[in-house]
Amino acid sequence: KYLVLALYDYQEKSPREVTMKKGDILTLLNSTNKDWWKVEVNGRQGFVPAAYVKYL
């Protein structure tokens, strides 16, 4: 498993997404889509914009 760092705040806009705050450390679950990565944060799984996170 990889960890990624939230570069920006992101507010979920659909039930498939998750909210994150700048500085959050997220567990990367799937990065096959170049635009949306599946992550786990605070016990929830969902998608965030790939451009908003970077590998640690």
Rank of each mutant, 00 (worst) to 15 (best):
K1H: 14
K1V: 13
Y2V: 15
Y2R: 13
L3Q: 12
L3K: 11
L3S: 08
L3D: 06
L3W: 12
V4G: 11
V4N: 01
V4T: 04
L5Y: 11
L5W: 06
L5N: 03
L7R: 06
L7W: 05
L7N: 04
L7G: 04
Y8A: 13
Y8V: 13
Y8D: 09
Y8I: 10
D9L: 02
D9P: 05
Y10E: 02
Y10P: 02
Y10Q: 01
Q11W: 12
Q11T: 15
Q11K: 12
Q11E: 15
E12K: 13
E12N: 08
E12V: 06
K13C: 10
S14G: 13
P15E: 12
P15M: 08
P15T: 11
R16T: 12
R16H: 15
R16E: 14
R16W: 15
R16P: 05
E17F: 06
E17Y: 05
E17G: 12
E17H: 06
V18P: 01
V18D: 00
T19N: 07
K21H: 12
K22N: 04
K22E: 09
G23N: 07
G23H: 05
G23I: 01
G23R: 02
G23T: 02
G23W: 05
D24V: 04
D24K: 03
D24Y: 04
D24M: 11
D24T: 06
I25M: 08
I25A: 04
I25C: 06
I25K: 05
L26N: 00
L26H: 03
L26S: 02
L26A: 09
L26M: 14
L26W: 01
L26Q: 00
T27H: 12
T27S: 10
T27V: 15
L28D: 00
L28H: 02
L28M: 05
L29M: 08
L29S: 03
L29A: 03
N30R: 06
N30H: 08
N30Y: 07
S31R: 12
T32I: 10
T32W: 11
T32L: 10
T32V: 11
T32Q: 13
N33Q: 09
N33E: 10
N33H: 11
N33M: 09
N33L: 10
D35L: 13
D35S: 11
D35M: 12
W36A: 02
W36I: 03
W37H: 03
W37I: 09
K38P: 01
K38N: 07
K38A: 11
E40C: 11
E40L: 08
E40M: 09
E40H: 06
V41M: 12
N42K: 11
N42P: 05
G43C: 07
R44K: 12
R44N: 07
Q45R: 12
Q45K: 11
Q45S: 12
G46P: 00
G46Q: 01
F47L: 08
F47I: 07
F47G: 01
F47A: 03
F47S: 03
F47E: 04
V48A: 03
V48N: 00
V48E: 00
V48S: 00
P49T: 02
P49C: 04
P49M: 04
A50L: 02
A50R: 12
A50N: 03
A51F: 09
A51R: 14
A51K: 14
Y52A: 14
Y52V: 07
Y52W: 06
K54S: 12
K54H: 13
Y55C: 15
Y55M: 15
L56A: 07
